[in-house]
Design a protein around this nucleic acid. Structure first.
Lengths: 210, 210
DNA sequence: TTTTTGTGGGACACTGATGTCTCATAAAAA
DNA sequence: TTTTTATGAGACATCAGTGTCCCACAAAAA
């Protein structure tokens, strides 16, 4: 405590860490956590719409100063990374609630699509840009989430889904419908209420009348 | 001809127009037209992938100098406008070849989707960014092309397509599948050969097995 | 109270993209 | 040939976005 002002070296940075919670882990504390979540949420929304939006736009949407944003995420890359990971976590939570392993696969698919719409902003951000998924995850995995592919595969095994295509194709088709649908809602062409049933109908039965 | 060097005023710009073809219309002449088309084609491809790509990237893709690009299209907006109009024209030509008014609507839809894939780069550029269509066209029309909406509507009247949704919905679903499919081809996940049949199958019959 | 923490507002230098110009050089037309 | 046309390369000023600092202020904790 006595070296606070006498120390000229980079130890002054310790002042930034010391106030952290005793558990010494991430900044989940009241004020810090709230600000952090506000920034991550705003980032997903703003950068999901326009990947090249200026950071000032993110700060404005999060209702924080640009200084504060840089204080939490030093540069753009770190913000994007953190937002990506946070989005995956948020989506994962929604998937858990959808209980993908329970009941018939077809009904699980319906719950999953509805869950995707609920966390639409995160989905658009995380899966809307192919370059993102490939940049993170250390490039080892495919960019289609395991559990989703598995669910579609189960649907095929149960004889409910078309087996003429790979389950990965269904993942991308679902994303495409979700992106398009959310965009139509944003631009006010269709109501949010109609979105899920419409996507489900088209996804399952296509455009043909029977 | 005698005022070429003596004139100091902006009439010197006439030197740029005088060499134009006698018909005094657009620059469709050999060299000029070729360069112009090369730039427009490259712009559709590059800007379709990344709307914020630097103009130097467009110039490189078109195999012209950045100076030349600016000579044809003074600023970014003019390039985008010209590329948009050119893309619409190119797409329109593809639609004509598809003969949307002939035969059963369902078969016309199949020809139309195949035609979209053929001019994929233009489709991605022109219809991939909602803001584009809304910025041009003097904002009066809807951004779904008349003829395409009409074709889907005809499909509904003929009893071939689902009448529970507006024909405009089909337009966006088709675009979504085309964008996704082309992206999967670009990233080498599926072969170009399989693309059209796969999109048609999913678009018409959906994911359900029957 | 005093001290610590979180914050916003500027000011600043730096960088990449942009748009304008000039000049030299080929190719095409006279 | 000479003249015109189309082009690429480079220099240049400008601008928006970025990242870094510093300072003052308010809320929370001591």
């Amino acid at each position: 405590m006595s070296h606070k002002k006498t120390c000229l070296c980079t130890l002054s940075e310790l002042g930034t860490f010391a106030p952290m919670t005793d558990t010494a882990d991430r900044a989940a504390t009241g004020a810090r956590g709230r600000t952090r979540r506000a920034i991550l949420s705003a980032a997903a929304t703003v950068l999901g719409q326009d990947r090249n939006a200026p950071l000032s736009a993110v700060a404005r949407a999060a209702d924080v100063g640009r200084s504060t944003l840089h204080r939490y995420f030093p540069d753009r890359d770190e913000l994007v990374s953190a937002t990506y990971e946070d989005s995956l976590a948020e989506i994962g939570r929604a998937m858990e609630e959808a209980r993908l392993h329970e009941g018939p696969a077809l009904e699980a698919v319906r719950r999953m699509i509805a869950a995707h719409i609920e966390v639409g902003d995160r989905v658009v951000f995380a899966f809307g840009d192919p370059a993102l998924a490939q940049a993170h995850d250390t490039g080892e995995e495919a960019d289609e989430p395991e559990e989703i592919v598995a669910l579609f595969a189960r649907g095929q095994e149960e004889g409910a889904l078309d087996t003429n295509v790979e389950p990965e194709w269904f993942v991308h088709v679902m994303w495409a419908l979700v992106f398009t649908g959310l965009d139509l809602v944003h631009t006010g062409r269709i109501s949010r209420h109609d979105l899920v049933p419409r996507i489900l109908r088209t996804f399952e039965r296509g455009a043909l009348v029977r």
